[in-house]
Design a protein around this nucleic acid. Structure first.
Length: 104
DNA sequence: TATTTGACCAAGA
DNA sequence: ATCTTGGCCAAAT
């Protein structure tokens, strides 16, 4: 772990199964407001197979994107009990995961 | 070094 | 509810 991207990937591992979080939440966990850079890091996709990046969605409950296609992302999520309708997470408030902040 | 680019977010003439 | 706009930050070009 040395660059911002790797920190993001590390944060992804902390998301428990059956929950989702937002790009912004990850950035805040890292003590930064670079939520946009987080998404950027995913799209660069240095290690898509290693890290389950399908548990990350937009703050408003929309999906965002996925390296292997949104359909795949939806399937993976539903397999974990998270339902998606019209590209939006259902019952988001219930499934949302917040990290404990490193800095406050 | 400078510019461009996003899997974003919040607010709203 | 949907669309537009401006701002945001790190990485890639």
């Amino acid at each position: 772990m040395k660059n911002f991207n790797d920190k993001c990937y590390q944060a992804l591992r902390l998301i428990p199964k059956g929950k989702v979080t937002s790009y912004k939440e990850i950035a805040r966990y890292l003590g930064s407001r670079a939520y946009r850079a987080v998404g950027n890091a995913m799209s660069k996709n240095k290690n898509a197979p290693e890290i389950p990046c399908h548990r990350v969605v937009c703050s408003d409950g929309k999906l965002g994107g996925y390296a292997f296609g949104l359909k795949k992302k939806i399937q993976l999520l539903s397999k974990e009990g998270i339902l998606v309708k019209n590209g939006k997470i259902l019952n988001l408030k219930n499934k949302f995961h917040t990290f404990k902040r490193l800095k406050k």
